[in-house]
Design a protein around this nucleic acid. Structure first.
Lengths: 102, 102
DNA sequence: TTCATATGTGAGATAAATATCATATGATAT
DNA sequence: ATATCATATGATATTTATCTCACATATGAA
Protein backbone atom coordinates (compact mmCIF):
# COMPACT_ATOMS: atom_id res chain seq x y z
CA UNK A 1 0.00 0.00 0.00
CA UNK A 2 2.72 2.44 -0.84
CA UNK A 3 0.28 4.56 -2.83
CA UNK A 4 -2.01 5.65 -0.04
CA UNK A 5 0.98 6.40 2.12
CA UNK A 6 2.53 8.79 -0.38
CA UNK A 7 -0.02 11.35 0.66
CA UNK A 8 1.26 11.25 4.20
CA UNK A 9 4.86 11.54 3.14
CA UNK A 10 3.88 14.60 1.18
CA UNK A 11 2.19 16.06 4.23
CA UNK A 12 4.87 15.28 6.79
CA UNK A 13 7.65 16.28 4.44
CA UNK A 14 6.30 19.81 4.39
CA UNK A 15 6.55 20.12 8.15
CA UNK A 16 9.73 18.22 8.95
CA UNK A 17 11.91 21.30 8.58
CA UNK A 18 13.00 23.84 11.16
CA UNK A 19 12.74 26.92 8.94
CA UNK A 20 9.25 26.05 7.81
CA UNK A 21 8.15 25.37 11.37
CA UNK A 22 9.71 28.63 12.44
CA UNK A 23 7.77 30.47 9.76
CA UNK A 24 4.55 28.73 10.73
CA UNK A 25 5.14 29.64 14.34
CA UNK A 26 5.67 33.32 13.63
CA UNK A 27 2.57 33.39 11.46
CA UNK A 28 0.47 32.09 14.34
CA UNK A 29 0.65 35.60 15.79
CA UNK A 30 -1.01 37.03 12.72
CA UNK A 31 -0.49 37.66 9.06
CA UNK A 32 2.88 38.93 7.88
CA UNK A 33 4.50 39.78 4.58
CA UNK A 34 7.76 38.22 3.47
CA UNK A 35 10.02 40.95 4.82
CA UNK A 36 8.27 40.84 8.18
CA UNK A 37 8.73 37.09 8.33
CA UNK A 38 12.41 37.56 7.63
CA UNK A 39 12.96 40.02 10.44
CA UNK A 40 10.79 38.05 12.85
CA UNK A 41 12.60 34.78 12.22
CA UNK A 42 16.06 35.88 11.16
CA UNK A 43 15.84 33.70 8.06
CA UNK A 44 17.13 35.08 4.76
CA UNK A 45 14.58 36.33 2.28
CA UNK A 46 15.21 33.85 -0.49
CA UNK A 47 15.06 30.99 1.95
CA UNK A 48 11.80 32.34 3.31
CA UNK A 49 10.35 32.59 -0.18
CA UNK A 50 11.42 29.05 -1.06
CA UNK A 51 9.86 27.67 2.09
CA UNK A 52 6.69 29.72 1.83
CA UNK A 53 6.19 28.24 -1.58
CA UNK A 54 6.39 24.74 -0.15
CA UNK A 55 4.05 25.61 2.71
CA UNK A 56 1.52 27.18 0.40
CA UNK A 57 1.65 24.25 -1.98
CA UNK A 58 0.84 21.97 0.93
CA UNK A 59 -2.04 24.08 2.16
CA UNK A 60 -0.27 25.08 5.35
CA UNK A 61 -0.34 28.82 4.64
CA UNK A 62 -2.38 31.12 2.44
CA UNK A 63 -1.25 34.15 0.49
CA UNK A 64 -2.98 37.43 -0.25
CA UNK A 65 -1.67 40.23 -2.40
CA UNK A 66 -1.73 43.77 -1.06
CA UNK A 67 -0.04 46.23 -3.35
CA UNK A 68 3.57 45.29 -3.58
CA UNK A 69 3.36 43.09 -0.51
CA UNK A 70 2.37 39.45 -0.20
CA UNK A 71 0.79 38.71 3.12
CA UNK A 72 0.83 35.18 4.41
CA UNK A 73 -1.48 33.63 6.96
CA UNK A 74 -1.23 30.26 8.61
CA UNK A 75 -3.90 27.63 8.03
CA UNK A 76 -5.14 27.65 11.59
CA UNK A 77 -7.77 25.03 10.99
CA UNK A 78 -5.02 22.53 10.25
CA UNK A 79 -2.06 23.81 12.23
CA UNK A 80 -3.64 24.53 15.60
CA UNK A 81 -5.26 21.15 16.25
CA UNK A 82 -2.33 19.37 14.71
CA UNK A 83 0.22 20.94 17.02
CA UNK A 84 -2.04 20.34 20.01
CA UNK A 85 -2.40 16.73 19.01
CA UNK A 86 1.36 16.37 18.85
CA UNK A 87 1.77 18.01 22.24
CA UNK A 88 -0.49 15.31 23.68
CA UNK A 89 1.39 12.54 21.91
CA UNK A 90 4.75 13.80 23.08
CA UNK A 91 3.51 14.19 26.61
CA UNK A 92 2.24 10.63 26.71
CA UNK A 93 4.84 8.70 24.72
CA UNK A 94 7.98 10.77 24.45
CA UNK A 95 8.11 12.57 27.77
CA UNK A 96 11.64 13.59 28.61
CA UNK A 97 13.08 12.57 25.27
CA UNK A 98 13.47 16.09 23.99
CA UNK A 99 16.33 17.92 25.49
CA UNK A 100 18.58 15.08 24.47
CA UNK A 101 19.40 14.73 20.83
CA UNK A 102 17.13 13.12 18.28
CA UNK B 1 10.46 30.41 19.44
CA UNK B 2 12.65 27.82 17.82
CA UNK B 3 12.68 25.77 21.00
CA UNK B 4 9.02 24.84 21.15
CA UNK B 5 9.10 24.02 17.49
CA UNK B 6 11.90 21.50 17.82
CA UNK B 7 9.43 19.07 19.27
CA UNK B 8 7.38 19.21 16.10
CA UNK B 9 10.39 18.72 13.89
CA UNK B 10 11.22 15.66 15.94
CA UNK B 11 7.70 14.34 15.46
CA UNK B 12 7.33 15.06 11.75
CA UNK B 13 10.83 13.88 11.01
CA UNK B 14 9.90 10.42 12.17
CA UNK B 15 7.03 10.18 9.71
CA UNK B 16 8.40 11.95 6.65
CA UNK B 17 9.87 8.77 5.23
CA UNK B 18 8.37 6.22 2.84
CA UNK B 19 9.82 3.12 4.48
CA UNK B 20 8.65 4.12 7.90
CA UNK B 21 5.19 4.93 6.61
CA UNK B 22 5.13 1.63 4.80
CA UNK B 23 6.00 -0.18 8.02
CA UNK B 24 3.35 1.73 9.95
CA UNK B 25 0.81 0.88 7.32
CA UNK B 26 1.52 -2.82 7.42
CA UNK B 27 1.36 -2.81 11.20
CA UNK B 28 -2.13 -1.35 11.09
CA UNK B 29 -3.33 -4.83 10.16
CA UNK B 30 -1.98 -6.21 13.40
CA UNK B 31 1.22 -6.98 15.22
CA UNK B 32 4.12 -8.42 13.28
CA UNK B 33 7.69 -9.43 14.00
CA UNK B 34 10.61 -8.05 12.04
CA UNK B 35 10.77 -10.87 9.51
CA UNK B 36 7.05 -10.59 8.86
CA UNK B 37 7.40 -6.88 8.31
CA UNK B 38 10.17 -7.55 5.82
CA UNK B 39 8.14 -9.97 3.73
CA UNK B 40 5.01 -7.82 3.95
CA UNK B 41 6.77 -4.67 2.81
CA UNK B 42 9.65 -5.96 0.72
CA UNK B 43 12.09 -3.85 2.72
CA UNK B 44 15.42 -5.38 3.72
CA UNK B 45 15.81 -6.57 7.30
CA UNK B 46 18.49 -4.17 8.41
CA UNK B 47 16.60 -1.26 6.97
CA UNK B 48 13.47 -2.41 8.76
CA UNK B 49 15.36 -2.65 12.04
CA UNK B 50 16.88 0.79 11.64
CA UNK B 51 13.51 2.32 10.93
CA UNK B 52 11.69 0.43 13.66
CA UNK B 53 14.17 1.85 16.09
CA UNK B 54 13.32 5.37 14.98
CA UNK B 55 9.60 4.70 15.12
CA UNK B 56 9.82 3.19 18.59
CA UNK B 57 11.93 6.06 19.84
CA UNK B 58 9.24 8.44 18.67
CA UNK B 59 6.42 6.49 20.27
CA UNK B 60 4.90 5.48 16.95
CA UNK B 61 5.24 1.76 17.53
CA UNK B 62 5.66 -0.49 20.55
CA UNK B 63 7.72 -3.63 20.91
CA UNK B 64 7.11 -6.82 22.81
CA UNK B 65 9.46 -9.75 23.15
CA UNK B 66 8.18 -13.25 22.48
CA UNK B 67 10.92 -15.83 22.62
CA UNK B 68 13.33 -15.04 19.87
CA UNK B 69 10.89 -12.77 18.10
CA UNK B 70 10.20 -9.09 18.61
CA UNK B 71 6.67 -8.20 17.83
CA UNK B 72 5.83 -4.66 16.91
CA UNK B 73 2.47 -2.94 17.16
CA UNK B 74 1.49 0.45 15.87
CA UNK B 75 0.46 3.19 18.28
CA UNK B 76 -3.12 3.31 17.11
CA UNK B 77 -4.12 6.05 19.49
CA UNK B 78 -1.75 8.39 17.69
CA UNK B 79 -1.60 7.01 14.17
CA UNK B 80 -5.26 6.44 13.42
CA UNK B 81 -6.62 9.91 14.21
CA UNK B 82 -3.51 11.52 12.76
CA UNK B 83 -3.89 9.88 9.38
CA UNK B 84 -7.61 10.66 9.36
CA UNK B 85 -6.85 14.26 10.16
CA UNK B 86 -4.43 14.43 7.27
CA UNK B 87 -6.97 12.87 4.92
CA UNK B 88 -9.34 15.68 5.80
CA UNK B 89 -6.67 18.33 5.31
CA UNK B 90 -5.63 16.93 1.95
CA UNK B 91 -9.19 16.69 0.80
CA UNK B 92 -9.89 20.31 1.66
CA UNK B 93 -6.63 22.07 0.77
CA UNK B 94 -4.62 19.84 -1.52
CA UNK B 95 -7.26 18.16 -3.63
CA UNK B 96 -5.82 17.06 -6.92
CA UNK B 97 -2.25 17.88 -6.00
CA UNK B 98 -1.17 14.33 -5.46
CA UNK B 99 -0.65 12.44 -8.64
CA UNK B 100 1.72 15.13 -9.77
CA UNK B 101 5.14 15.27 -8.21
CA UNK B 102 6.01 16.71 -4.78
C1' DT C 1 11.34 56.08 -17.75
C1' DT C 2 14.33 55.16 -14.13
C1' DC C 3 14.99 53.81 -9.50
C1' DA C 4 14.17 51.54 -5.24
C1' DT C 5 11.75 48.13 -2.73
C1' DA C 6 9.50 43.55 -2.38
C1' DT C 7 9.37 39.00 -3.71
C1' DG C 8 10.27 34.89 -6.60
C1' DT C 9 13.09 31.38 -9.22
C1' DG C 10 16.81 28.24 -10.92
C1' DA C 11 21.21 26.13 -10.43
C1' DG C 12 25.11 24.71 -8.14
C1' DA C 13 27.20 23.98 -3.44
C1' DT C 14 26.52 22.06 1.00
C1' DA C 15 24.45 19.44 4.57
C1' DA C 16 21.56 15.83 6.20
C1' DA C 17 19.03 11.66 5.84
C1' DT C 18 18.78 7.07 3.98
C1' DA C 19 20.48 2.69 2.21
C1' DT C 20 23.78 -0.87 2.25
C1' DC C 21 27.23 -3.90 3.94
C1' DA C 22 29.72 -6.31 7.26
C1' DT C 23 29.29 -7.91 11.47
C1' DA C 24 27.49 -8.41 16.32
C1' DT C 25 24.19 -10.15 19.70
C1' DG C 26 20.63 -13.17 21.48
C1' DA C 27 17.75 -17.17 21.56
C1' DT C 28 16.53 -21.88 20.51
C1' DA C 29 17.54 -26.39 18.93
C1' DT C 30 20.85 -30.22 18.13
C1' DA D 1 29.40 -26.33 22.36
C1' DT D 2 27.87 -25.54 17.78
C1' DA D 3 24.68 -24.35 14.40
C1' DT D 4 20.85 -21.74 12.93
C1' DC D 5 17.48 -18.32 12.89
C1' DA D 6 15.98 -13.57 14.37
C1' DT D 7 17.19 -9.07 15.14
C1' DA D 8 20.31 -5.12 16.00
C1' DT D 9 24.26 -2.00 15.27
C1' DG D 10 28.06 0.85 13.23
C1' DA D 11 30.43 2.64 9.39
C1' DT D 12 30.57 4.01 4.85
C1' DA D 13 28.25 4.91 0.34
C1' DT D 14 24.52 7.06 -1.76
C1' DT D 15 20.57 9.77 -2.25
C1' DT D 16 17.75 13.61 -1.10
C1' DA D 17 16.87 17.97 0.90
C1' DT D 18 18.49 22.44 2.11
C1' DC D 19 21.03 26.62 1.52
C1' DT D 20 23.17 30.18 -1.08
C1' DC D 21 24.01 32.99 -4.88
C1' DA D 22 23.04 35.33 -8.98
C1' DC D 23 19.49 37.00 -11.28
C1' DA D 24 14.43 37.72 -12.67
C1' DT D 25 9.96 39.92 -12.10
C1' DA D 26 6.64 43.06 -10.17
C1' DT D 27 4.96 47.20 -7.99
C1' DG D 28 4.96 51.88 -6.74
C1' DA D 29 7.54 56.27 -6.36
C1' DA D 30 10.32 59.99 -8.22
Amino acid sequence: MKHAMETYQFFFGALANPNRLHIINTLRQGKKNVTEICTATGIEQTMVSHNLKVLEHHGMVFREKEGKYRYYTVNKKTIKPLLEFIDAHMEEYCCKIMGKKR
